[in-house]
Structure formats: structure tokens, C-alpha cells
Amino acid sequence: MTASLDHQRALRASTLAQDLRALFGKLKRRLRDQADAGDFSPSQVSVLLRLEQDGPTTASALARAEGMRPQSMAPVLAALEGAGLISGTRDPDDGRQTLLSLTQACRKWIEDGRAARQDWLTRALQARLSPQEQEEVTRAVELLRRLVDE
């Protein structure tokens, strides 16, 4: 009996994991649609997010962090620089190096995109869920946070 119950629980957890992955993927796509993401490749977006999180760094450090060869990173950076999203300055510690960072225009674009996604999600929660359902989602978020917090 216990083996059957364990099997049922494992199957239920597997189904729940599949449903959560699908749901979060759909939510991510809906959020992405709410802000003008431009026509940027996943590599370009990843570089922008890394520069936002980690701050200024060199092209070679970005390539290492992204698991790319420096030669492959060059066109990614050139496109971002051409779009006015990143700029380079001399490294004060090593004048041979260039530190890449986000431009003010890029920071504003990121901020505006986040605000648009936040606004859409807030409006969707208010329009589609009752206050009681919003409380249920709050409790579910607390449980999900336990899954990812280490």
C-alpha cells in the first residue's frame, strides 16, 4: 500500500511540476509582450541583464560569463553599442582595457519595460481575481519562494 501511495505522490508531483513549468513559461511570454523588448537576441538580452546586475565589465569577462568565445561576443556588443544601449570607457585600473556599461537610455528602457510589465500584472490580478483569490495566490507565492530559496 505504501509503495502505491508513494508512486501516486511522485506522479502528482511530476504532473504539478509540468503544469508549473508550462504556466510560468506562458506568464513569462505574456509579461514579455507587455513591454517593447525590441528585436534583440537572447544573447543580447542576457548581456544587458548581466551588465545591469553585475555592473561595468570587460568584453572578455562578459564572454566568459556568458560561456561564449570573445570572437562571438564582439557582434553582440557591437549591436548593443550601435543601438545606444551600452558604452565603453577606459578601465581606470588597466588603461588597456575597456569597461562596458549600460547607457542612461538603456537604464530608462529597462525601467520602462519593468513598469509596463508590473502595471499589466497588477491590472490582471485586480480584474481577474477576487480579493480571496489574490490571497490564495499570495500563499502560493510564499510556497513557491520556498522551492527556489536556498
Rank of each mutant, 00 (worst) to 15 (best):
L125C: 12
A105F: 01
S87H: 15
S4H: 02
L80E: 02
A116N: 10
L31R: 11
R117M: 14
T122G: 09
E81P: 01
R128Q: 15
D54Q: 15
R117L: 00
D33A: 10
L100W: 12
G113C: 04
Q53V: 11
R128G: 09
L121V: 01
M73H: 03
I110M: 12
P92L: 09
A61V: 04
R139I: 02
A124P: 06
V137Y: 05
Q44F: 06
R69L: 02
L129M: 14
E136D: 10
A35N: 02
T138L: 14
G82W: 02
R12P: 00
R123I: 01
R114L: 04
V141S: 10
G88S: 11
R50Q: 13
A65E: 11
E136N: 07
R32I: 00
R145L: 14
R12A: 13
Q97I: 02
A116G: 06
R29K: 05
A124L: 13
A74I: 01
Q34C: 08
A65H: 03
P70S: 08
Q8M: 03
E52Q: 15
S72R: 09
D93P: 01
M68P: 03
G38E: 00
D149E: 08
T98N: 06
R96P: 00
T58H: 08
G25S: 09
G84P: 07
S14Y: 04
A124C: 10
R145Y: 12
F24W: 11
S130K: 14
D91Q: 08
Q126R: 15
L125P: 08
R9H: 11
S130G: 03
V148K: 05
I86H: 03
E135T: 11
S72E: 02
Q8I: 06
